[in-house]
Design a protein around this nucleic acid. Structure first.
Length: 191
DNA sequence: CAGTGGATGCTCT
DNA sequence: GAGCATCCACTGT
């Protein structure tokens, strides 16, 4: 895995339920200004989910989560890290896939310099880590995913998925809305 | 390994 | 003023 060189995903790809889109994101290449890799772990959050930022309606922070699909929703986590979501469903519906881990394939040297010297498997093995490695901040919040600096390339083979419960939340803990590439050493945690 | 706690900033009550 | 969709360094086996 790790060498997906398929066609570019357009924003129409995301205009469906996040629960349908998210499993299909595993194996997709995600690049920001040419730096990134293969998505190996995502989580889904929808509007009826108490763990989701979209629960209870829009706020200034979550505006892009309620915006049109195929765009980025970037937020700050624990005051330190940034986290990247890919907005799905229809405008006004607040569904998004949190990108939790990548297998680094492009721009390794850039990622290492941004993160400090690290083993490849530690560069993007977590939502905060991968945003640091790819240079994602508030600047990318609300930007379309089918235009620079973003580039998403479709996978060419269907991966074997692992499914589990989400990480780091306190509400709706039981929902099996975490998807990963089975057996990948680049996950944030084992399933 | 597993477990704990500190750093840090912003949103919402 | 609390509570985070986290990460890292540190402790103790």
């Amino acid at each position: 895995m790790g060498d997906a060189v398929g066609e570019r995903l357009t924003r129409e790809f995301f205009a469906r339920s996040v629960h349908e889109v998210a499993p299909e994101l595993i194996g997709v290449a995600l690049l920001v200004d040419g730096v990134g890799g293969t998505i190996v772990e995502v989580e889904t959050y929808d509007q009826d989910d108490p763990a989701s930022h979209g629960f209870g309606g829009p706020t200034p922070r979550t505006a892009s989560m309620f915006g049109p699909p195929g765009h980025a929703y970037v937020y700050r986590s624990y005051g330190i890290h940034w986290c990247l979501n890919l907005v799905c469903a229809a405008e006004g519906r607040a569904e998004a896939a949190l990108v939790r881990a990548l297998e680094p394939t492009h721009g390794l040297a850039t990622m290492r310099s941004r993160r400090g010297l690290e083993a490849p498997r530690a560069l993007c093995s977590g939502p905060g880590k991968l945003c640091q490695a790819l240079g994602v901040t508030r600047v990318q919040d609300g930007l379309p995913l089918d235009e620079p600096p973003f580039e998403l390339l479709a996978r060419e083979t269907e991966p074997t998925l692992a499914v589990g419960t989400r990480v780091g939340i306190t509400r709706a803990v039981e929902k099996p809305w975490r998807y990963g590439l089975a057996g990948s050493p680049f996950l944030s945690r084992r399933f």
